[in-house]
Amino acid sequence: MIASLHLDTSGRDPRNLSGSLRELRSPLAGGVHSVRIQADGGADIAPVLEAVFSIDDPEYPGVSIVDLGLLEHVEVRNGIVGIGLIPTFSGCPALAMIADDVEAAVLAVDGIDEVSVSWLRSPAWSPERLSVRGKEALKIEFTVAVQIGTSTPECPLCGGPTVEKSMFGPSRCRSVHRCEACTETVEVMRG
Protein backbone atom coordinates (compact mmCIF):
# COMPACT_ATOMS: atom_id res chain seq x y z
CA MET A 1 0.00 0.00 0.00
CA ILE A 2 1.37 3.43 -0.88
CA ALA A 3 0.31 6.34 1.25
CA SER A 4 -1.27 9.08 -0.78
CA LEU A 5 -0.17 12.66 -1.14
CA HIS A 6 -2.64 15.49 -1.33
CA LEU A 7 -1.31 18.38 -3.28
CA ASP A 8 -2.70 21.84 -3.44
CA THR A 9 -0.30 23.87 -5.48
CA SER A 10 -2.56 26.91 -5.81
CA GLY A 11 -2.05 27.35 -9.49
CA ARG A 12 1.23 26.52 -11.14
CA ASP A 13 3.24 23.45 -10.18
CA PRO A 14 5.91 24.31 -7.66
CA ARG A 15 9.40 23.77 -8.95
CA ASN A 16 11.04 20.39 -8.32
CA LEU A 17 7.76 18.88 -7.28
CA SER A 18 8.25 15.65 -9.16
CA GLY A 19 11.65 15.12 -7.50
CA SER A 20 10.10 15.77 -4.09
CA LEU A 21 7.32 13.32 -4.76
CA ARG A 22 9.78 10.59 -5.57
CA GLU A 23 11.60 11.26 -2.34
CA LEU A 24 8.44 11.44 -0.34
CA ARG A 25 7.18 8.10 -1.60
CA SER A 26 9.96 6.16 0.02
CA PRO A 27 9.33 7.21 3.64
CA LEU A 28 5.60 6.81 3.09
CA ALA A 29 5.67 3.48 1.29
CA GLY A 30 3.74 0.91 3.24
CA GLY A 31 2.15 3.48 5.54
CA VAL A 32 -1.62 4.01 5.48
CA HIS A 33 -1.82 7.75 5.97
CA SER A 34 -1.57 10.69 3.64
CA VAL A 35 0.58 13.75 3.89
CA ARG A 36 -0.99 17.00 2.79
CA ILE A 37 1.36 19.33 0.97
CA GLN A 38 0.35 22.84 0.11
CA ALA A 39 2.65 25.21 -1.68
CA ASP A 40 2.26 28.41 -3.62
CA GLY A 41 3.38 28.73 -7.20
CA GLY A 42 7.11 28.85 -7.61
CA ALA A 43 7.83 27.54 -4.14
CA ASP A 44 10.72 25.10 -4.08
CA ILE A 45 9.44 22.52 -1.65
CA ALA A 46 12.07 19.83 -2.25
CA PRO A 47 14.65 21.29 0.18
CA VAL A 48 11.92 21.84 2.78
CA LEU A 49 10.82 18.20 2.58
CA GLU A 50 14.42 17.03 2.62
CA ALA A 51 15.01 19.05 5.78
CA VAL A 52 12.03 17.39 7.48
CA PHE A 53 13.15 13.93 6.31
CA SER A 54 16.63 14.56 7.71
CA ILE A 55 15.36 14.65 11.29
CA ASP A 56 15.70 11.37 13.14
CA ASP A 57 13.74 10.21 16.14
CA PRO A 58 15.90 11.13 19.17
CA GLU A 59 15.57 7.58 20.50
CA TYR A 60 16.25 5.89 17.14
CA PRO A 61 19.21 7.60 15.51
CA GLY A 62 19.14 6.85 11.78
CA VAL A 63 15.36 6.48 11.61
CA SER A 64 13.60 9.54 10.15
CA ILE A 65 10.51 10.91 11.86
CA VAL A 66 8.83 10.71 8.45
CA ASP A 67 9.51 6.96 8.28
CA LEU A 68 7.88 6.69 11.69
CA GLY A 69 4.75 8.36 10.28
CA LEU A 70 4.89 11.56 12.31
CA LEU A 71 4.51 13.95 9.35
CA GLU A 72 0.95 15.04 8.62
CA HIS A 73 1.21 18.23 6.59
CA VAL A 74 3.59 20.75 5.10
CA GLU A 75 2.60 24.15 3.87
CA VAL A 76 4.93 26.57 2.11
CA ARG A 77 3.72 30.08 1.33
CA ASN A 78 5.84 33.16 0.68
CA GLY A 79 8.86 31.81 2.51
CA ILE A 80 6.75 30.84 5.51
CA VAL A 81 6.54 27.17 6.36
CA GLY A 82 3.96 25.47 8.54
CA ILE A 83 4.55 21.86 9.53
CA GLY A 84 2.04 19.63 11.30
CA LEU A 85 3.32 16.58 13.13
CA ILE A 86 1.55 13.99 15.23
CA PRO A 87 3.12 12.40 18.33
CA THR A 88 3.28 8.64 18.88
CA PHE A 89 1.63 9.47 22.21
CA SER A 90 0.67 12.82 23.68
CA GLY A 91 2.97 12.70 26.72
CA CYS A 92 6.06 11.88 24.66
CA PRO A 93 9.01 13.79 26.15
CA ALA A 94 10.75 14.09 22.80
CA LEU A 95 8.16 16.47 21.33
CA ALA A 96 9.94 19.72 22.15
CA MET A 97 13.23 18.32 20.91
CA ILE A 98 11.80 17.02 17.64
CA ALA A 99 10.00 20.31 16.98
CA ASP A 100 13.18 22.28 17.69
CA ASP A 101 15.18 20.01 15.36
CA VAL A 102 12.64 20.31 12.52
CA GLU A 103 12.40 24.06 12.92
CA ALA A 104 16.19 24.51 12.84
CA ALA A 105 16.60 22.26 9.80
CA VAL A 106 13.86 23.97 7.78
CA LEU A 107 15.00 27.47 8.77
CA ALA A 108 18.40 26.59 7.30
CA VAL A 109 16.78 26.18 3.84
CA ASP A 110 17.47 29.06 1.43
CA GLY A 111 14.54 31.40 1.05
CA ILE A 112 12.71 30.25 4.18
CA ASP A 113 12.16 33.07 6.66
CA GLU A 114 9.76 31.60 9.14
CA VAL A 115 8.85 28.13 10.34
CA SER A 116 6.17 27.02 12.72
CA VAL A 117 5.94 23.42 13.83
CA SER A 118 2.79 22.26 15.53
CA TRP A 119 1.82 19.01 17.23
CA LEU A 120 -1.66 18.04 16.08
CA ARG A 121 -4.26 16.45 18.32
CA SER A 122 -5.66 14.34 15.52
CA PRO A 123 -5.40 11.95 13.84
CA ALA A 124 -3.98 9.61 16.47
CA TRP A 125 -0.70 7.93 15.58
CA SER A 126 -0.74 4.19 15.05
CA PRO A 127 1.96 1.69 14.01
CA GLU A 128 0.23 1.38 10.60
CA ARG A 129 1.78 4.72 9.73
CA LEU A 130 5.32 3.32 9.75
CA SER A 131 6.89 3.01 6.32
CA VAL A 132 8.43 -0.23 5.08
CA ARG A 133 11.83 1.41 5.42
CA GLY A 134 11.04 2.50 9.00
CA LYS A 135 9.95 -1.01 9.97
CA GLU A 136 13.06 -2.52 8.41
CA ALA A 137 15.35 -0.08 10.21
CA LEU A 138 13.69 -0.81 13.56
CA LYS A 139 13.96 -4.54 12.92
CA ILE A 140 17.52 -4.67 11.64
CA GLU A 141 19.19 -1.83 13.52
CA PHE A 142 17.33 -1.95 16.82
CA THR A 143 15.81 -5.47 17.04
CA VAL A 144 12.43 -3.81 17.55
CA ALA A 145 9.22 -5.38 16.21
CA VAL A 146 6.04 -3.56 15.22
CA GLN A 147 2.55 -4.60 16.23
CA ILE A 148 -0.20 -3.82 13.76
CA GLY A 149 -3.59 -3.93 15.47
CA THR A 150 -3.77 -7.03 17.63
CA SER A 151 -1.58 -9.15 15.36
CA THR A 152 1.25 -11.24 16.82
CA PRO A 153 4.53 -9.40 16.27
CA GLU A 154 7.30 -11.43 14.66
CA CYS A 155 10.65 -11.81 16.33
CA PRO A 156 13.09 -9.47 14.54
CA LEU A 157 15.84 -12.10 14.86
CA CYS A 158 14.22 -15.39 13.82
CA GLY A 159 10.73 -14.46 12.59
CA GLY A 160 9.08 -16.63 15.24
CA PRO A 161 5.92 -15.64 17.11
CA THR A 162 6.29 -13.50 20.24
CA VAL A 163 4.18 -13.31 23.39
CA GLU A 164 3.63 -10.17 25.40
CA LYS A 165 5.35 -10.16 28.79
CA SER A 166 4.50 -6.58 29.70
CA MET A 167 2.38 -3.88 28.10
CA PHE A 168 4.93 -1.36 29.28
CA GLY A 169 8.42 -1.14 27.87
CA PRO A 170 10.81 1.78 28.26
CA SER A 171 8.25 4.04 26.62
CA ARG A 172 4.47 4.31 26.32
CA CYS A 173 4.72 3.42 22.62
CA ARG A 174 6.50 0.11 23.29
CA SER A 175 5.69 -3.19 24.98
CA VAL A 176 7.98 -6.08 25.94
CA HIS A 177 7.57 -9.48 24.30
CA ARG A 178 9.48 -12.72 24.30
CA CYS A 179 10.08 -14.84 21.21
CA GLU A 180 8.59 -18.31 21.66
CA ALA A 181 11.07 -19.80 19.19
CA CYS A 182 14.48 -18.32 20.09
CA THR A 183 13.66 -16.78 23.56
CA GLU A 184 14.91 -13.31 22.53
CA THR A 185 13.56 -10.45 24.62
CA VAL A 186 11.85 -8.21 22.06
CA GLU A 187 10.65 -4.63 22.30
CA VAL A 188 7.54 -3.99 20.25
CA MET A 189 6.36 -0.65 18.94
CA ARG A 190 2.63 -0.45 19.54
CA GLY A 191 -0.30 1.95 19.35
Partner: peptide
Protein backbone atom coordinates in the same frame (compact mmCIF):
# COMPACT_ATOMS: atom_id res chain seq x y z
CA UNK B 1 7.71 15.35 31.06
CA UNK B 2 11.37 14.49 30.68
CA UNK B 3 11.58 13.19 34.26
CA UNK B 4 8.46 11.07 33.76
CA UNK B 5 9.90 9.61 30.58
CA UNK B 6 13.31 8.98 32.09
CA UNK B 7 11.66 7.12 34.96
CA UNK B 8 9.83 4.86 32.54
CA UNK B 9 12.96 4.44 30.43
CA UNK B 10 15.12 3.36 33.38
CA UNK B 11 12.55 0.96 34.79
CA UNK B 12 11.97 -0.40 31.27
CA UNK B 13 15.71 -0.90 30.74
CA UNK B 14 15.94 -2.64 34.11
CA UNK B 15 13.08 -4.93 33.10
CA UNK B 16 14.73 -5.89 29.79
CA UNK B 17 18.10 -6.43 31.45
CA UNK B 18 16.64 -8.57 34.26
CA UNK B 19 14.99 -10.75 31.61
CA UNK B 20 18.27 -11.18 29.73
CA UNK B 21 20.18 -11.84 32.98
CA UNK B 22 17.57 -14.38 34.20
CA UNK B 23 17.86 -16.26 30.88
Amino acid sequence: MSVLAKTQDEIGHGHLLYMVAAD
